[in-house]
Design a protein around this nucleic acid. Structure first.
Lengths: 196, 196
DNA sequence: CGAGCGCTTGATTGAGTTCAAAAATCGTGG
DNA sequence: CCACGATTTTTGAACTCAATCAAGCGCTCG
């Protein structure tokens, strides 16, 4: 199972098998059942997970009890609560497993330690964080500028895989619309395609 | 002027005056006129700016010619185009100066070089990037979950300063609503306050 | 095989947009 | 320092996209 993590890393930075062995030897994996709650709003967790197999999500619950999905984390994605991770503060979000999932538990000091073994880990960390920001800026821009239909089309294009694995109401929740609206958006799109 | 950068850094990590001297000696500042365009969509820039004085913004222009503000960068904020910074790709966004501004030009390898001088810079970089992510997750959550009024109240609370410095139509653009709507939101709020 | 969950569809409502125009504020040159 | 034009903010009325409420369908999994 660790093989996946190894090829993920070696696809991004050049490290030897020995270096990988060194930095991964103390890593533990954890498995979650489908629908298992991993973290809830108000708890504190300094853990980061690297998903080896399955699918996790983080989401908030608003005043009316509605869920809003902040992030999906399928294979090879990282997910954590930054409040806990950075400042040992309570989490603003919940986290659970959409599918049965196996994930690596990445301790807070992982990159720091790994950097001792191979300095490129510093760059990897920085690149990944920058990518996450870029990614979120893009999402913010869509939420500001695009209609429900445009956001859905963008989602399908960006995550063809998730579009099939995730129930529709969760996609709606990620896009910031109701399941009913997404159903109608899809109906309209099917119509348009048919006509074209 | 560099003093501001020094106290910013020393407030976050412990570095000596000598170390600061070492890492800052090659930094250049740049001044921008009010309304000066710094970067436009499609151009490539690997620069990051650290604002010493003034106010910058990044924004996109949608198909209908409407601007959507992605980020405000007042004093002590960092701003850059991540597409250019990471991959030398064309920018998705524009950047300009809302006020006359003086900013430090931070070269791409700044943190890498600074880390040689004082290893804590690695942590600082990582912490700042994590904070940016935390911050944007919060904004995404608001865009998904909150009404125009709630988003405005959050903005005022988070940036009492900017609320006064930035024209209302720009705040509206940041919040994802029209200037007319923000005007009405404010009217309603004034009403409520009066009654209470 | 039936209870529950997810998806669809319809009717209605409502938050925010659009378009238009007036009122207030700002900035600049005389 | 004032006046005038430009920009920003406010207000009004009509409209629109998406939300809400409600009902029905179809699957799956216990």
């Amino acid at each position: 199972m660790l093989e996946k993590f190894k090829s993920y890393l070696q696809g991004r930075i050049s490290i030897t098998d020995e270096q990988f062995e060194e930095i991964s030897k103390n890593l533990k994996t954890k498995t979650f059942l489908k629908n298992e709650l991993i973290l809830s709003q108000g708890e504190t967790s300094t853990r980061t997970y690297f998903v080896l197999e399955g699918l996790l999500r983080s989401y908030s619950i608003d005043g009316k009890g509605k869920a809003h999905i902040i992030q999906f984390a399928p294979e090879s994605w990282w997910i954590s609560d930054r409040n806990g991770f950075l400042n040992n503060e309570a989490s603003d979000f919940n986290m659970d497993a959409i599918e049965a999932t196996t994930a690596l538990i990445i301790p807070k000091d992982f990159f720091c330690v790994a950097e001792q073994v191979a300095p490129v880990f510093g760059q990897l960390n920085s690149t990944m964080l920058n990518n996450a920001i870029r990614f979120m800026q893009r999402r913010i821009n869509l939420l500001l500028a695009a209609t429900a239909e445009e956001r859905y089309l963008d989602f399908v294009k960006l995550y063809p895989d998730l579009t099939l694995r995730v129930p529709q109401w969760m996609i709606a929740s990620y896009l910031g619309i109701t399941p009913e609206s997404l159903s109608r958006v899809r109906k309209d799109l099917a119509h348009k395609h048919f006509k074209a």
